Amino acid sequence: MVTSPRTLADVSESDLLRRIFPFFEGSASLAVGPGDDAAVLRTGPTTVATTDSMIRGRDWLDEWSSPSDVATKLLTQNLADVAAMGATSTAVLVSLVADPATSLDWVVEFARTLGKRASDLGVVVAGGDLSSAPEGVLMVSVTALGDLEGREPVLRNGARPGHAVAVNGTLGRSAAGLALLEGGADPREAASGIRAACLAHHLRPSAPLHAGRQAAEAGASAMIDLSDGLLRDGHRIAEASGVRIALSPAGLHDDLAALQEVVAEAAWECLLAGGEEHSLLATFARDVPDGWRTIGAVEAGDGVTLDGVVQRPRGWDHFSAQNGND
């Protein structure tokens, strides 16, 4: 009886690539795809580029997250950054740094999901890199490219007093999902309603990618991906623009009420400081476009306030011991 290889140590690099390349579909924008020294892409006159990494034990736990969950989260957080610039994602490069004892099935499932999700979003997997690592180490990273399609990028520094502050997507759900998991929730439980939505958003987040281009076309003056929390990312716009972001409790009421059903007293902290949400926060000088909801206003001053009370820029920070929920 022939048994399948169980770990990366059981296959060669070439054999591994032959197993995962079929999951990565080509496109008209890809002149030379995976398999050569570098990919060749047909891109527009202005290309947006970003990169992000995830490390097992730091950014996910195998007890909670499947390879499909990790692939979904990694792709989402990169494409959300491209969208936050007002661009449309076109291609990604993916890298794997792994202990040779890593399960081959883990890598194949990760690649299958990454390829399928990218294809569904019209994004091509153009190539990447493989490397071995010390015992226990597993790291994956994506570099994402996007096309501004002739538009100017939407930066963080264009907010001005009198502009509206608006969000597209959810708030606090990833942090609430994490709180549930830390409280002993089964990540595969047959939950329903807002509880299920919070668990799913932490494990397999989605992002309103279309809204980045929409905001740019509507004249957004500043925009950011909510990856590190509403307060911390709001402070980034405030600091870059030299203004104050004044959040309104009324504008956040529905988000708060939904979270209170799941995490009760922790709802405010999840909403304000919870990271990995990947919704888009933007400011608009003119009408807020459809699908966006106003949660505050830009004022003269600095920092972020909630109902007039100054808020410290808490939220996720990779190198700080003072992180909020994430």
Rank of each mutant, 00 (worst) to 15 (best):
E217P: 11
G193R: 01
G184E: 01
A191C: 00
T76K: 03
A273N: 08
V97E: 15
R42D: 14
A49R: 07
S53T: 12
P187K: 05
N78C: 13
R58T: 14
G315A: 00
V154Y: 11
D307N: 11
I245P: 03
A222V: 04
V40F: 04
G136C: 08
W106K: 01
A240T: 02
V70K: 03
W316S: 07
T88P: 00
N168I: 14
D225V: 04
R58I: 10
L306G: 04
V48H: 04
G308N: 05
W60H: 02
S68I: 12
A118R: 00
R160Q: 15
A144F: 02
G315F: 06
K73G: 15
P313S: 09
T113C: 09
G33N: 11
E63P: 04
A215N: 11
S4R: 13
L181E: 05
A133L: 10
L171P: 04
H318A: 15
V298T: 10
F21I: 15
V108L: 13
M139E: 14
P205C: 06
S103I: 03
T76I: 01
V108G: 10
L104T: 02
V70M: 00
A321D: 13
V298R: 10
L17P: 06
A175V: 05
L145H: 09
R56K: 12
L247R: 11
A321S: 13
L180R: 07
T113D: 09
V48N: 06
G177Y: 06
G275L: 01
V140Y: 03
H318Q: 08
P67T: 02
V70Y: 03
V2T: 11
